[in-house]
Amino acid sequence: MAQAVLQGILLGGVFAVVGIGMSMIFGIVKLANLAHGEFFILGAYLSMLFAGQLDISPLLTLVIVVPLMFVAGYALQGALINRVLGMGDEPPLLITFGLSFILQNVLLLIFSADPQTLKTTYQLKTIVVSDSLIVPVLYLVNFIVGALVILILGLFLRFTYTGQAIRAVSDDNMAASLMGISVKRSYSIAMGIATSTAAVAGVVIGTTFTFYPYTGSEYLLVAFGVVVLGGMGSIPGTLVGGLVFGLARTIGSQVFGTNYQMMIGYIILLAMLMIRPQGLFSK
């Protein structure tokens, strides 16, 4: 059990990154991006492509994958989603739903439905703490990457002009726009950040679990769970949400078997939606 708790915490750091982009878009653009899971898994596939072509470690491919995904997210928001934002709740939601379907099928077409993993040199290494407690290096590295992403994003939002502008838009986009901030550009940057953080999460998850073109929707629900648990746009909340989902998954898998590993997470999520849909950490 201690082992499950440890792995759950380490996994939670990554789950927080799965959710953080979704949380930003939720908080800033007020949109549930149903294609978030596909951006996540697209990151894993891109990394696989570059790691294979250039013969480098998946973590190193982040140098290429992150900017690429940022541009993709920025362009997507600017060219497509910003255009339908004034049309009510449903059109933007359905656009991202359509996008998720398209991306899934594009991945299927290019990479086939075969299960894939990203191979690393440290995937089997462990640090033995005691007889009953082993730290897999893979999980540790993933956790560190996750923590770094959250730290950098937190500093960016707090201390840079662009970050502050994004937060201002999130609080009150009318007031922000009167102060000379371009709301739509802030949305695009936020989406770029969301897609690139999703891709980082995809790469680290890809080194740990097998993935298919369909894996995205499973992690969309994780991301959504993290958002609902943590409250939209809250970084500490996202961390807590990630930890809860990481623990729910590893403990659920240990207690109820792998078929039911997502069940506890889903139940927590539904309960949260019923009792406190604005999240634990929202203002």
Binding site: L80, V84, P91, L94, G98, I102, N105, L109
Partner: peptide, 13 residues
């Protein structure tokens, strides 16, 4: 499926 998805998005826009 890709074509269907693109058509759907085009219609929404």
């Amino acid at each position: 499926n890709i074509i269907l998805g693109v058509i759907a998005i085009a219609v929404i826009v």
